[in-house]
Design a protein around this nucleic acid. Structure first.
Lengths: 194, 194, 194, 194
DNA sequence: GATGAATGAGACTTCATTCAT
DNA sequence: AATGAATGAAGTCTCATTCAT
């Protein structure tokens, strides 16, 4: 029963992801999501309070999934530079291999929903320390391995290019092979290394 | 007469910019834009064929303005590195000093409208060469001053951080003073310099 | 369930018929139709894609009904002249007993919708032969019972007066009793008989 | 001055006729009519109180013109049958040679405007007797040359086919040459002759 | 619990009419 | 007198949400 309930919830979230990624939040009526999920329109409202709630819940799930994928084979015992390469290699692979997730998350963070979430995160330092990027940059700064700039700036210098590049890739403007990926991450490192 | 006509068009565009930046395209009914511009709803349609047309026209104006600001004091006779600093300094100042313009343009380029525009630009090589960033990277690559990666990647490595950072600034997560701006641009250069 | 669904569709069609007959297509907002049908405005769009679709569907229903009424007690085994009398007697009774249907159909056939329908019919010979008037005139011409003019002209000579007369009747300019009806149909026959 | 004023009024009426015939009353914004007439939108309202007024005035002009054309070479001294042929020959020629006028008048008489006009006419017996058709049928009935049916019915039997046929011709369903025209009028006469 | 028909607020857009110039 | 920019009421249609079954 509970299992089945979870399944249906999952089905709806999956359908929502696909529809949102393809059509945007405003081009995606709840009826379309319900149809794709093969449930009644009303059913959607048994699992989510509103369309907004569905979007926020989908974000939570995507966020968790993204974090877990990005941390694959990531050991905090490795040397900083190696950890940096692993982390960004994972990030690039995640965004390019999961275009729907990426498109959804981009949309989310560029919308009023996402701004609220980011505001909330900023006020929760515990959340912040759990962030592997923040942790890595903190450690690297302490060890004098990278330039001593605010973490926000370091995030911009490294994650900024990845997101920008992913958009170009998804738009079909460029393709990234293994070698180019490696060169790119090297350039990210060069931007912040001392 | 003509002046006044231009004025009203301008008033509507200005109102639209503010409303779009605050609420997004879909959260901005034409009635709200008309009200902000202090004109009747129908008046909007004397100056623009449709809401879509208004958005595209606003983009054109913003694009022209942005380009002109970004090229302030930019001389192609300067050494490459100096030109790079000037260009990105201008870019950062523009985006942070004009949050509404930045928010609008971000939204635009992340929407179907913007994707169409980018597709069109990509297919017009003349337009491409007119882009100061593309021209600068082309020259720098030829002179062996920067790493030999596709222009798309170089754009990502340099503009990507600026846009990411601007979002953080506008969200109030960080403030950039002159020194920090300089360090950031230095880091951008380090990312791509040979 | 299905019965009730059909009922609501029917209710809307019936309301539309009354409103259209009274006010014309352009004088009949969808809101007025919905109100008359005692449903929400949106409900109308669950049963019909658009106002145009509603008009076309209403025509289909009216067309079917009209044909069936006109063919009441009409046997192709009867002598030609008797069939002629029966057909036109039925036609006159139908148009005068169903003023709303008549007004709607007149409007429809004089509108772009109807012209398209007539064009389509003309290009489908199978449909044409199914028309009892066309069939009757074809047979009568073959048998040398009526003048050898194009079917379009024969239609004009016989149906034309009926429609003209119906308009006069509905406007209250004249009343047709059994005897006058008979004399009129006799005149129609005189117009085309050899 | 007065001449010029009349000219401008005429220009607007002419433009309205063309636009109405092509697009129908509801598909013809006043702005479109003004543009075709090469006058300002506001100017239209100096010559006509409203769009409705323009339509009614246009009808008056068209009505006068139609009557005059139909009476070309029509002498009340000719024998009845000859007068009948002349009248209907003129009528057919008028409707087919002036499709715009015909389309406008049809629209007009099928609209709420026309119904009001016809009601008014019925209550003005003087107007009725001035009608050449009514006069002709009256005389013919008195002389025992045609069947003794109400004038309304005789009108239907003769004018009805003409209007029906004209619609077919304008829709491109059939063409009428001299011979066919003559046969048709003969059939009209056969319908009512004693 | 699941459904999907029903709803009506609200979006975009048109256009008859007015009125300052 | 002529203009045409401005207006806003009204029209068509969409869709998030509810609720009877």
């Amino acid at each position: 029963m509970t299992q089945e309930k979870k399944d249906k919830r999952c089905t709806i979230l999956q359908a929502a992801l696909e529809i949102f990624a393809e059509n945007g939040f405003h081009g995606s009526p709840t009826s379309m999501i319900a149809e794709k999920a093969e449930v009644g329109t009303g059913t959607l409202y048994r699992y989510f309070e509103s369309k907004d709630d569905l979007i926020r819940e989908l974000h939570k799930e995507m966020d968790i999934r993204a974090r877990s994928v990005i941390l694959t084979d990531y050991a905090t015992t490795l040397p900083i530079a190696e950890r940096f390469f692993k982390l960004f290699s994972n990030l690039i692979h995640y965004t390019t291999a999961n275009p729907r997730e990426f498109r959804f998350l981009e949309q989310f963070y560029n919308s009023p929903y996402g701004i609220a979430v980011r505001q909330a995160r900023l006020q929760d330092p515990e959340n912040l320390e759990a962030d592997p990027f923040v942790a890595l940059f903190g450690e690297a700064k302490k060890d004098g391995l990278i330039i001593n700039l605010p973490t926000e700036v370091l995030m911009a210098l490294t994650a900024g290019p990845v997101f920008f590049l992913t958009r170009s890739i998804l738009a079909g403007f460029i393709h990234l092979d293994e070698e180019l990926t490696h060169s790119t991450i090297q350039a990210l490192w060069n931007a912040i290394k001392r």
